[in-house]
Amino acid sequence: MSVPRFWRRLKNVYNLIGTQCENCGMYYYPPRSLCPKCRRSSLIIPFKFKGEGEVLTYTIVHSATKDFEKHVPYILAIIKLNEGPNLTSQVICSPEEIHIGMKVKSVFRKLGEESEKGMIYYGTKFVPLLNHSGK
């Protein structure tokens, strides 16, 4: 992805900032400039998500694209945020630990790097909400 294209969405990616529709109250992450429910763009405001949710489904990726080949195997998941919306991200835990319904929270991590340009992506990943010692 080009540098301007990545920078444009930095604040959303780094801080889990999405949007909320002031008209119907729905939360959106990734952010949207138009509420798909109301289809009115003027009433959309930024919203910072708490970053807690649960694993809706997951996979362990063994074969990746160039940007991620150094990171295999990694856990890719769809996370349901407590505020409502779902997003795609990675979960950092052991393959034995990951399961549907697992409670997770967001952390700031390196996402990947572009092989040709050497650009490194940072962004939000998720970790188990309760660590082992905290039990």
């Binding site: 992805m1 990734p30 940007d67 990694y74 890719l76 997003l87 795609t88 991200s89 990675q90």
Partner: peptide, 11 residues
Amino acid sequence: DREWEGVMGAT
């Protein structure tokens, strides 16, 4: 979605 799936490592 390149920006919200691909960039997270989705294939």
